[in-house]
Amino acid sequence: MRALAAVFLREMLILRRRLARQVLAMSVSPLLYVLTFGLALGGSVAVDGRSYLEFLIPGLAAMSSMTQAFAMAGEINVARFYLHVFEEFQAAPIPRLSYVLGEALAGVTRALVSIAIVLALGFLFGVRLSYGLAFWGALALNSLAFASLAVALAMLVRSHADQALLNNFIITPMAFLGGTFFPLESLPGPARAALSLLPLSHASRAARAGAFGLDPGAAPYLYLGLAAAAFMLLAIWAVARARD
């Protein structure tokens, strides 16, 4: 437990020192999406009887939670390849699970900050939705899944450049195809089925249903929980493999 706390605390101390910069950086993309898609393009569009901006905000929160949780991979990469701080964890008598959980929880924390930023932006532009347990539960699980995936892939890549490729091939396509900007139900059957495999699709759907006061059902939570567990197991295996 102390080891887990040590890994988490280290990330939090760093986050606290850079908080102002981080909040600014985390605000840029959501603000641009709100301005371009939410207000300019979607100003005259309604989805299921709601304004496009109301449709967009929960999806944007899900997308931000994914990108910020996955951004842990970049932090771990820097610690591993440039600062060599990862060696301190490798040499310490700590179980791999403690390291993975500590980093993953740090990713979840970053993701929660980014969700708060998106909701604040929504509030600023007049979006009033209900952000209860169904909403936060879906996004917390989504964050845990992508933070765990971040730890796993950060251990498997051989250089910082490889990490950028993963962002290009995994995170960016998922951000645009995971139900953030359009309802998956509007797609033809095979495309909808394929995109339903993405964890982000489940997170967007559940977060949106929760924010609209509807019942998302148990399925998205189960799917996200299973994804988080699978990625965490992958991360534990990958930490052992990170030894040269």
Binding site: R2, A3, A5, A6, L9, R10, E88, F89, A92, P93, I94
Partner: peptide, 8 residues
């Protein structure tokens, strides 16, 4: 942080 990693 080091002390925590070693359970102190």
């Amino acid at each position: 942080i080091h002390g925590r990693l070693y359970g102190l």
